[in-house]
Every structure is written in C-alpha cells, then in structure tokens.
Amino acid sequence: MYLWDLALRKGNLGYIKYILKSSLMKLPIFSWAFHIFEFIPVERKWEIDEAIIQNRLSKFKDPRDPIWLAVFPEGTDYTEKKCIKSQEYASEHGLPKLENVLLPKTKGFICCLQELRGSLDAVYDVTIAYKHRLPDFLDIVYGVDPSEVHVHIRTVELYEIPTSEDEVTEWMIERFRQKDQLLSDFFTKGHFPDEGTEGDLSTPKCLANFLVIVGLTGICLYLTIFSSVWFKVYVVASCAYLSFVTYFSIQPPQLIGSPEGDDLHAKKAL
C-alpha cells in the first residue's frame, strides 16, 4: 500500500508492478486491475513460478520501458507465529535469527535479477516501519492509517550485488540482518538514521483526482442502469472479457519502445 504512495510521490505510479499471490487474482474487480497493470501472480511453488516469472519479465527488458518491480522476498506478511517458525529454521540451518523480519526466500529475487540485470538502473532496498503498532489487513480495508509511517530507502547499485546464486543468497541474508537491526534501532529511537521528512501530497490535486473518479464511476453506473439495452450489453460483455483474460492470464500485445525516440532510457528498478 505504502509503496503505491511512494510511487505516486515520485511520479511513477503507473509503472509499479507487484509480484503477488495468485489467489489475489480471484478477487472480483480488483483482479481485473491487477491484470491490466501487469502484476505477476505466483503460486509460491518454484517449479511452477520460475517459468511464470521468466515469461512475464521477458516483456519488461526493453530499457525504454519504465518499471518499478516490487518484490517481497519474505513471501508473506509478518506475524509473531511466522517469525518463530523463521527463527526455528534459522537455528537449524546456522542462519541469523531475526526479530523484526522473516528470513528471505531468495529464488524469486535471483530470477528477477537475472532476467532484468541488463536493463536495471538500481535495486531499492525499502524498509517500512510503523509507529505504535503494525496495521493489519482490516485496518487497510477500512482505511485506518497508522499514526506515522517511516520509509527507509537504500539505493543498491548493480555492481554491489554478486552474480552467482550462492553469493546473492548470502548477500540478501546479510541485507535482511541489517534490515532487522535497522528496525530494532527504529523501535528504540523512534526514527531511522539521518531521517528527513516528506511533504504532504497536494490536497487540491488529490481532491480533483477523487472527484474525477467518483464522477466517472457515477456516470458509468447511471448509464448502466438507465441507458439503452445496448449499453448494458456492452458493460456485460466488457466484464465478461476482463474476467476471461484475467482467469486465463491472457496478456495484451506489448508495446515496444517509447514514442519519444530510441535513445531514451527509462527508469527501471527492482
């Protein structure tokens, strides 16, 4: 959620893409948006997901096509129960026991890195901390924001990341150990090191966007209910089409390159 806010502030909202659980692609209406924005659904079974990720990322390699690819190496949300399970695994395999994050699963990240390394500008290591308490799913659904949200971003240049899988795994585990310490320090001090402040989003601009969305939604609902039968047929056909392409994961043709010229290099980040 807050990555969307970050992308909005940086003018890249239309370019952010998530790797998410395939079960989310079954949500009514939301799944249509996920499909249109070219999010990548995974089953969390590597023998299935590897081919899916490689196929989807093959369409994003053109350096003229901007993309922010959001990858969550932990593979799930943080809970106390999952943390204990992660610590047990760490003890059994001689890995660091983490208190504030889970041990990362590295195969997905390594696959993304291998597929996009030739066109990536950087990897952004993002750590999000919440004041007082971690919001749960219902908080997000009902729009109950935490009192404060702190975002720590470290830019990692590609030359800093090893190339072999074993070395990348070690590098990522070390990054998560540092991330765990970063969060421990945050909970002690109440802020990240060298923390700045981000200005508020423009209220008039946000209000204008909200009114446009509400207005267009209202017009569509009005036309659907009170217009001719042909418009109703069009709406039903559109919904059926979106349901069909989402269920069968049919992607639209990829637009190659940028209309502004072949020498343009768009921002790509993982």
Rank of each mutant, 00 (worst) to 15 (best):
residue 193 P to M: 07
residue 231 F to L: 13
residue 152 H to D: 11
residue 217 T to K: 02
residue 191 H to F: 08
residue 213 I to R: 13
residue 131 K to Y: 05
residue 132 H to F: 07
residue 152 H to W: 08
residue 173 I to R: 09
residue 190 G to R: 01
residue 197 T to F: 15
residue 170 E to I: 07
residue 191 H to E: 13
residue 220 C to L: 14
residue 182 L to C: 05
residue 190 G to H: 04
residue 133 R to V: 14
residue 152 H to C: 14
residue 187 F to Q: 12
residue 170 E to K: 14
residue 188 T to W: 03
residue 235 V to Y: 06
residue 154 R to G: 05
residue 188 T to M: 13
residue 146 P to C: 11
residue 230 W to F: 06
residue 183 L to R: 08
residue 145 D to G: 06
residue 228 S to P: 04
residue 174 E to C: 06
residue 223 L to M: 07
residue 125 D to A: 03
residue 116 L to W: 05
residue 211 L to A: 13
residue 224 T to N: 08
residue 128 I to N: 08
residue 226 F to K: 09
residue 224 T to K: 06
residue 120 L to F: 08
residue 224 T to R: 07
residue 119 S to C: 11
residue 158 L to T: 01
residue 118 G to Q: 10
residue 142 Y to M: 14
residue 221 L to H: 13
residue 233 V to I: 10
residue 116 L to R: 03
residue 150 H to D: 10
residue 212 V to I: 15
residue 226 F to V: 04
residue 224 T to L: 12
residue 122 A to M: 10
residue 216 L to W: 09
residue 149 V to N: 01
residue 179 K to A: 07
residue 213 I to H: 14
residue 172 M to C: 04
residue 117 R to C: 08
residue 162 P to A: 10
residue 120 L to G: 09
residue 232 K to G: 12
residue 163 T to V: 13
residue 216 L to I: 11
residue 204 P to N: 01
residue 152 H to F: 15
residue 129 A to Q: 06
residue 143 G to T: 01
residue 130 Y to Q: 06
residue 150 H to M: 04
residue 221 L to D: 10
residue 155 T to D: 08
residue 191 H to N: 10
residue 159 Y to R: 15
residue 179 K to V: 05
residue 190 G to K: 02
residue 181 Q to N: 03
residue 132 H to L: 12
residue 182 L to G: 02
residue 185 D to K: 11
residue 132 H to E: 12
